[in-house]
Write a protein that binds this DNA or RNA. Structure first.
Lengths: 148, 148
DNA sequence: ACAGACATTAACGTTGACGTAAACGTAAAA
DNA sequence: TTTTACGTTTACGTCAACGTTAATGTCTGT
């Protein structure tokens, strides 16, 4: 169990940001000390890093991230439901299918955005590499020239 | 030569954004009409798209992008210099080498950031794919179950 | 026991990246 | 020719994502 400062260092976020994320309902420390200090588990930290990655890499707003995550929670809820005896009911099975489909659609959309970004990133990387080799060549030229 | 509205559509940016980028010194239309309308060339559009990609994919601020681009301009200036007769001067060659090295270092840093992002994106993509297959499986299960 | 480094909440401030409205000129079409 | 639909600059508004400050409580070493 870590205190906020420790987590800030681990995640490279500020304490303010961590509290802000919590305020938005994005992350919640698993516990508090008697006196009210936030206590984070390793799992919490992993979760925070995932949020950060989603923000940085997907470029998603914190609101969007929250929406995705809320959907994830519905998924977890669904999973629990799956093992309850209620699922004998046919109507309930239909409801679960509906939710699963919705989740699938959303995740696939997210995935496609990621894929698109990955493609463009690869292009950009190639561009950089070409520029870099051109520079390296030019440097060689100049060095040769200066020796003559 | 396109007017601003056309460019806005091509780049999927707003007119306001285009003017704002110009204000920051990020992009400049190659010309103006007699009456002061902005005129963009295809090259300008390509440039704007590059800026947009850098913003979206690298997640860089417009200021950072400007700094990168200013370095690019120094590179172009250097290239012109390269063909001037001044480069007979040894000292001048040294200066060029210094600048080229600086440019190389900066670009390589940028490239590494890109590479890092690409790696993380790939990880995330895998995570999404795993989740999606799990969902697909669960859906199959449920569909089977509802048929019995 | 007390200084100093941590924590808390509450509230106002800041910054980047535009949006929006006003007041106006221009170009194309009816 | 007079709408209609573009363009211009200027300037204030907005919103997300925190930063910062204030006022206060808590833990830790000496």
């Amino acid at each position: 169990m870590y205190q906020i400062e420790e987590v800030a260092k681990k995640t490279n976020l500020t304490k303010r940001a961590l509290r802000y994320y919590e305020e938005l309902g994005l992350v919640s420390p698993s516990g508090r000390t008697e006196s009210g200090y936030r206590l984070y588990t390793d799992e919490d930290v992993t979760h925070i890093l995932h949020v950060k990655n989603t923000r940085d890499l997907l470029g998603a707003s914190l609101q969007e991230i929250k929406e995705i995550m809320d959907l994830g929670k519905r998924y977890e809820l669904l999973k629990q439901d799956y093992f309850s005896d209620k699922h004998a009911n046919d109507q309930h099975v239909g409801e679960k299918l509906r939710l699963l489909t919705e989740l699938e659609v959303t995740l696939r959309a997210q995935r496609d955005v990621l894929q698109e970004k990955l493609n463009k990133l690869t292009e950009m990387l190639q561009g950089y590499d070409e520029k870099l080799t051109r520079i390296t060549n030019k440097k060689r030229e100049l060095e040769k020239e200066s020796k003559e």
